[in-house]
Simulated assay, not measured.
Amino acid sequence: MIKLKCYSALLLTVSINLIGCQTTEIEAPKTTPIYENTAAFTPDILDGDGDGVLDGIDECPGTPPHRVVDAKGCLVELDVGGLEIEFVGFFPSMSSHLPAIYDTEFAKVAEKLNEYPKASAFIFGHVATNEISEGPLETLDFDSLSRNRALIIKNTLVLQHNIDAKRIRTYNCSNKLLFKDTDYINPSFKALELEGFESKQRRATLMASSSVSNLTNLKYEYYIKRYGEYAKHCVKFE
């Protein structure tokens, strides 16, 4: 019974306090303006995915959090400082010997590959149409010249610059990817005193990337544009 009385007294005290809270009215200072925020509930200015672009103009709703978007609310692919380089070397007719004029440029390519040890290198061997029809090639595989041109680039990287051979893939492009007369040709072409349409096709192309490791699985438009034609027309040697 004593406990009950104490409990009743406690309830009475709390009830009195609550009544006091309910009847106490605090008036805001007259100098403090009171705003009513109704805009937050207006449907046409909501930002459902929190990307900073309002739903009414967001063309890519459902953006994952903490991602960079453009003015339309779509994801922006950022350049994270990876490696993308390209080298083109030209050869004398019917030759797979890379001229010494490229030694300095090659050293720079190898230096970059060493800076990015996980980057892959793709080497594409090319031949001119008139080289395919030459007599010596009729007794060999027609692709042997383009293969040797790609391999000379690979061997230079491996033997002279200690690049791991497993990072390098070589391809035969035959005469399927042609330089046009309007295409940019690096200064070495003229330095080698080469001229004419066929001379432009006697080449090997090296492309290195820290983002692309497989030409059969190109995911982004930039890499499809950059490597797509090689993936389509060139056959992998190794």
Rank of each mutant, 00 (worst) to 15 (best):
T156G: 08
D183N: 10
G52E: 14
T38P: 06
E195F: 10
L4R: 07
Y227M: 14
E198H: 07
K180I: 07
P64A: 11
S96Y: 07
A119W: 03
L11M: 03
L98Q: 08
G196V: 11
N175C: 05
R147H: 12
E77I: 15
N155T: 04
L151R: 09
D143S: 09
S209E: 10
F237M: 12
N162L: 09
C21G: 10
A128F: 00
F122G: 13
E105S: 11
N172V: 03
R167I: 06
S199W: 14
V76P: 04
E134W: 00
L140N: 11
T13V: 15
E238I: 14
L78K: 08
A40Y: 06
H233V: 15
P61S: 00
S96M: 06
R147C: 06
A128T: 01
P64M: 05
V127T: 10
K118A: 09
G73I: 06
G56F: 07
P43M: 05
G73L: 07
F91E: 03
K154S: 15
D183F: 03
T38M: 02
T42Q: 13
P65E: 15
L11R: 01
F189G: 01
S199R: 05
L10F: 13
K232I: 12
H161L: 02
K166A: 05
A231H: 02
S210W: 04
Y230N: 05
K5C: 12
V127G: 03
Q201I: 00
T129C: 00
P187M: 15
A40H: 07
G52N: 08
I132Q: 04
I168Q: 01
Y7F: 13
S213I: 02
S133Y: 00
A119F: 02
Y223V: 02
K118M: 06
F189V: 03
A28Q: 11
I19H: 11
Q201D: 01
T182C: 06
A71E: 14
V158L: 01
C173M: 06
Y220S: 13
V109M: 01
E131D: 11
F237S: 10
T32M: 12
K180F: 10
I16M: 15
F122Y: 12
G56E: 09
Q201K: 00
Y227S: 13
E27V: 07
D79Y: 12
A121M: 04
H66V: 07
L140A: 06
K232L: 10
A150F: 00
L12G: 14
F90N: 09
S96G: 07
L177W: 02
A208L: 12
R149M: 01
N186R: 15
P65C: 11
L140K: 15
K236C: 12
I101Y: 02
L78C: 09
E229V: 09
S96C: 10
H233I: 14
A231F: 03
D79M: 06
N172P: 11
G81N: 05
K118D: 10
K3R: 12
V88C: 04
Y220C: 09
G196E: 13
Y223Q: 13
